[in-house]
Write a protein that binds this DNA or RNA. Structure first.
Length: 490
RNA sequence: GCCCUCAUCGUCUAGCGGUCCAGGACACCGGCCUUUCACGCCGGCGGCUGGGGUUCGAAUCCCCAUGAGGGCGCCA
């Protein structure tokens, strides 16, 4: 592929050294959406693979909807994904500022607007007083426009769509051809003086020396408009690539109806960052081994292999991938991720990890059976609390007439054990079950309820082993005492 | 309405004219393991949107239809 070759060479047509520059340009009007995160990921991977730079630019020219909180949350989510930028807010760089609102204040767009006005590529559109939708007059005279403005008319600067066709090569779709007559003149400066999206992207991408614009397919038909602006200036154009959108299970655009759509939603539900980007990368990308860390696969990453059809977001598969990561990653790393998550979602459990050796053992046996941090927390919790609060099912078992004698027997066997290992615990517990008049299943469930307050737990013998003799005995004793207390009251 | 894009199992995909009566993964179903729930292992179900061409030969190339997605803002 032509464009790929020139990228690999890292030279422009004239043979000069050039750096590949890719940008992600979110507008801070909400949370970082899965689709945005995926685009950012691909932008990042593409830049890094080709030894280029990844730039973050905040497109906040919508003064009504842009908020600083939104920008901050987008930045936070991007960082959580593991995506960092070479230039952008916070890091800055020589092409800054990287917030369009600041570029407006700096007067960056003005001279370019004037240039188009002067060349006749753009004109002032003056609207009727009664109907601000209806153009009263077009003019290129600044004085005239100002006059009307003073009289209360709203005035915009519009770009005149030239005759002919606009053609460009999309890196994914190939040759794209648009008949210019299908477009209306477009507003490039709003009546409040702010540039519009289609205009601001062009001057910023040009000024920031962006070489590749890789973005969602929703921008495909914006591209010819932008190209016309590039041409009006006589600027060199970046390469364009449009990647398919993400849909919900019913093939409509992924929305809140389908469940969470924000990066933060998945974070808070207990999806691990690496698993999340793993899934995002996988969506539309065919690979041999599906479990990987995209950041470690930069070299083998190939944007050209990306599927060209919109992909349905599959929550179930994300969960599976997450579970795989949880089981495969070093336990210390899982613990780190888990603690980070707990800090936000369950701060009262932060003291669980004081005994780190114990915590590690607990996590090791629990991670085998769950696919997200939330479920892990439920599994792990009874190991750390002083006295687990029994679930309804567990309470029913503890209240049964047979509980006391069998608990006593179990306690007795555990007390007598001289070697503390999973095998020994298992042997002892099994022999009690065999000698007593109770089914294994019932007996094991009773122990689960007594020790962990739940009927669904990690392996029983492992659990007992990890809890340790003291804790095990104490917990059984505690249940026994409770029973005594309640029967005494009756 | 007009313009653009896309089209393989339920979902994500492999396939780029013969090696495909279409391969993998998730989900689903069944079995094994088994103390619960899972994990894990084994097996099964399941697809080339339709119609025309091109060709000795088409999932693969071309046309049309259909369907899906996007766009047509002083939103980005």
């Amino acid at each position: 592929m032509e464009c790929e070759r020139s990228v690999r060479n890292g030279r422009d047509i004239g043979g000069n050294e050039m750096t590949l520059r890719v940008r992600f340009a979110p507008s801070p009007t909400g949370y970082l959406h899965i689709g945005g995160a995926r685009t950012a990921l691909f932008d990042w991977l593409f830049a890094k693979k080709n030894g280029g730079k990844f730039i973050l630019r905040i497109e906040d020219t919508d003064t009504q909807r842009s908020t600083r909180e939104s920008e901050e949350s987008i930045i936070k989510d991007l960082k959580w994904c593991g995506i960092s930028w070479d230039e952008g807010p916070e890091t800055e760089g020589i092409f800054g500022p990287y917030r369009q609102s600041e570029r407006v204040s700096a007067g960056i767009y003005e001279e370019y607007v004037n240039q188009l006005l002067k060349s006749g590529a753009a004109y002032y559109a003056i609207y009727e007083l009664e109907d601000a939708e209806k153009i009263l007059k077009k003019t290129t005279s600044k004085e005239e426009a100002d006059d009307y403005r003073e009289k209360g008319h709203s005035v915009t600067v519009n770009f005149r769509i030239p005759n002919g066709k606009t053609v460009f090569e999309d890196m994914a779709k190939g040759k794209m051809e648009f008949d210019n007559s299908t477009f209306d003149d477009l507003v490039i400066v709003k009546s409040n003086g702010y540039p519009t999206y289609n205009f601001a992207v062009v001057v910023d991408d040009h000024l920031m020396k962006i070489s590749h614009v890789i973005r969602g397919e929703d921008h495909l038909t914006n591209t010819p408009k932008q190209i016309m602006i590039y041409d009006a200036f006589g600027w060199e154009k970046p390469k364009f690539m449009h990647i398919p959108l993400i849909l919900g299970p019913d093939r409509t655009p992924l929305s809140k109806r389908h469940g969470g759509t924000s990066v933060d939603y998945f974070r808070s539900r207990g999806i691990i960052d690496r698993a999340f980007v793993n899934y995002l990368a996988l969506l539309g990308w065919g690979v041999e081994d599906e479990i990987f860390d995209p950041f470690e696969k930069v070299e083998s990453f190939d944007l050209y292999k990306l599927s060209s059809k919109p992909a349905v977001f599959d929550y179930a598969k994300l969960e599976w991938i997450n579970g795989q990561h949880m089981r495969r990653m070093p336990i210390e790393e899982l613990i780190e991720k888990f603690k980070l998550w707990m800090k936000d979602e369950y701060p009262k459990g932060m003291n669980w990890f004081e005994d780190s050796a114990y915590a590690e053992k607990v996590m090791e046996i629990c991670r085998q059976k769950v696919n997200n941090l939330e479920a892990l927390r439920n599994f792990v919790e009874p190991f750390f609390v002083e006295k687990p609060v029994p679930t309804q099912d567990a309470q029913k078992i503890l209240d049964s007439h047979y509980a006391k004698s069998y608990l006593l027997a179990a306690s007795d066997a555990i007390e007598k054990l001289d070697k503390w290992s999973v095998e020994e615990v298992e042997k002892a517990i099994r022999s009690v079950a065999a000698s007593e008049d109770i089914s294994k299943k019932k007996f094991f469930q009773l122990l689960r309820a007594a020790l962990l307050g739940q009927t669904v737990t990690p392996g029983l013998f492992e659990s007992i082993y990890v809890l340790g003799r003291e804790r095990t005995l104490a917990r059984i004793q505690c249940i026994l005492n409770q029973r005594r207390a309640s029967s005494a009251r009756e």
